[in-house]
């Protein structure tokens, strides 16, 4: 575990805490994409199947449980909480799951390091995570009135990905046999997805303006 990895995980954790606090404090999930949250739930479930088979560390197990629990909490609130569910932008959050899930599934069946159920699902989760933010970015562009917390949530998620790239560089330089090409390429794609958002986020912050994305 290096500093970049720890900071990356903490940023990821913080992003989820920001989202939980925002929804809980304002009793509103306006601007939050349920599709993205559900894609993350699929990502975590497929990737963390090894919770039952492969113990890595207490840290690893605790973080996995937190990511699963918090994501399912958000989904539960958005779907079933009697106050919060009313605030969900159902009509704007129209990105289709299958456009992301099917290509990622096909790709994971073709490009994987071992053709087993666990390994294919793990690889699928890596590919799906790279694009899971897209419904959220599309919703953000549509709602056009982004509250600070939603903007911060996405900024923190993007930062976590950037820190993971630094973690990989560090590991590549310090661990002799450390190589994971599929993860690296997906991770770089995932980070590129955020670049446009980062540009507008930083610009609005510098100019002290409310964040808005051009249509």
């Amino acid at each position: 575990m290096n500093l970049f990895r720890l900071l990356g995980d903490m940023t990821h954790l913080l992003s989820i805490i920001v989202l939980l606090l925002k929804i809980n404090a304002t009793r509103s999930c306006r601007g939050v994409s349920l599709k993205t949250q559900e894609l993350y739930a699929i990502v975590f479930v497929c990737r963390y199947l090894d919770l039952f088979t492969n113990f890595i560390s207490l840290y690893n197990t605790v973080m996995k449980v937190i990511f699963l629990g918090s994501t399912f909490t958000i989904i539960y609130w958005m779907r079933f909480h009697k106050v919060i569910r009313v605030t969900y932008d159902r009509d704007q959050d129209t990105f289709r799951y299958q456009f992301l899930i099917i290509p990622c599934l096909l790709l994971s069946l073709i490009l994987n390091s071992e053709f087993t159920v666990m390994e294919v699902l793990w690889t699928f989760s890596i590919y799906l995570e790279a694009v899971a933010i897209l419904p959220q970015l599309v919703l953000l562009q549509r709602t056009n009135n982004i509250d600070n917390l939603t903007g911060n949530y996405i900024f923190l998620l993007g930062s976590y990905r950037a820190l993971y790239i630094l973690n990989w560089i560090y590991r590549f330089l310090t661990e002799p046999n450390y190589r994971q090409y599929l993860v690296w390429i997906s991770g770089i794609v995932q980070t590129i997805v955020y670049i446009d958002f980062f540009y507008y986020y930083i610009r609005s912050w510098k100019n002290n303006e409310k964040l808005s994305l051009p249509a």
């Binding site: 890595i56 690893n60 990511f67 993971y164 046999n177």
Partner: peptide
């Protein structure tokens, strides 16, 4: 074995 190493990441 290479890929298994990577599984310590979240």
């Amino acid at each position: 074995a290479e890929e298994a190493e990577a599984k310590d990441e979240l």
